[in-house]
């Protein structure tokens, strides 16, 4: 049994190579251990005080978000809110203010819950994850990272150090919405993110959609290329049908599979509509859920 506070990335990577597991906010790890989901690892290395791991950096290709950046930082970051809105929408819905202060983006990604609130947004934004080990680092797409509920393709000695998100094309917007029964400490019943690029005439030039809590991992909708050129309303309707058709939800304490299959189509349609409004230059406050969706203040 050991608990080490890493002061540098090298210290953290050495601890992982020796068999320790990383902990940042601990919001999934500690709660999971208390539920009996998995015992607390015998050896832990705290990665929340490593310089640089909690920074958001603008690059030539887009934005690099350190793995230890908190949801609180993401929901209030002006560039992320304006340009990578679906990620800010998702971060603003995680847990409560307390969860958002200690919970990190890297933790949310590597916990690999299919109901995670940042995953669908990152997927439609085309994000890649940087995994680092002592031997070097590699980048993986989210589709290659998540393999099953709670499972990733990362090796035990690899640490998620950053998320790279490319700059969206001009006239693009994105949004993430979820169905929820209460406004805090909630897990998505279903959720949907959309990224829309508009053509100069207002038609949809490109659309990407990803769904949460309706498959073993975040589900990226296929077959949307054929929708290019359609109106926003037509594309939103087609996406809703595709979402309900491609979803493979389960029944559990939060909803039946039948209910999830229907409502994920509704969420997907609203996500496309909100993303298109943002693509057209309209500002919809973060998170979309509180501005126009379920859970909006009356």
């Amino acid at each position: 049994m050991s608990f080490t506070i890493a002061r540098t990335l090298d210290e953290a990577l050495a601890a992982l190579a020796a068999g320790a597991r990383p902990i940042a906010g601990g919001t999934d790890l500690v709660v999971g251990a208390r539920h009996g989901k998995a015992p607390l690892p015998a050896d832990l290395v705290a990665i929340d005080r490593i310089p640089g791991l909690a920074e958001v950096t603008v690059t030539a290709a887009g934005i690099t978000i350190g793995a230890a950046v908190s949801h609180h930082t993401l929901e209030g970051h002006p560039l992320i809110a304006s340009t990578y809105s679906a990620l800010a929408d998702g971060s603003a819905l995680v847990g409560s203010p307390a969860t958002r202060h200690v919970g990190t983006l890297g933790g949310n990604i590597m916990n690999a819950s299919p109901a995670m609130d940042t995953g669908a947004g990152l997927t439609v934004l085309g994000a890649e994850v940087e995994l680092r080990a002592q031997a070097g680092s590699r980048r993986v797409t989210l589709a290659d990272l998540w393999t099953a509920p709670g499972r990733t393709s990362a090796r035990p000695d690899e640490l998620c150090v950053a998320v790279h998100v490319p700059t969206p094309a001009p006239r693009s917007g994105s949004a993430y919405l979820r169905l929820e029964y209460r406004r805090a400490m909630e897990i998505a019943v279903v959720g949907a993110a959309a990224a829309v690029t508009l053509a100069p005439d207002g038609s949809v030039a490109a659309v990407r959609v990803a769904l949460s809590a309706v498959a073993p991992t975040i589900l990226s909708l296929g077959g949307l290329e054929t929708l290019a050129g359609g109106s926003v309303n037509d594309v939103a309707a087609a996406v809703a049908a595709a979402a309900s058709q491609q979803a493979t939800p389960i029944s559990d304490v939060r909803a039946t599979d039948h209910y999830r299959r229907h409502t994920v189509g509704v969420m997907a349609r609203r996500a496309v509509a909100a993303a298109a409004r943002r693509a057209a230059g309209e500002t919809i406050a973060i998170p979309v859920n509180r501005s126009i969706g379920i859970g909006a203040a009356s």
Partner: peptide, 28 residues
Amino acid sequence: DCECGACMVLLDGQPINSCSYLAVQAQG
């Protein structure tokens, strides 16, 4: 269980659920 907030304390001025935070994490 990190749901009710009765255990809320501040860590460097920010709220956390102390029931679901390891004491060793709070060093320093």
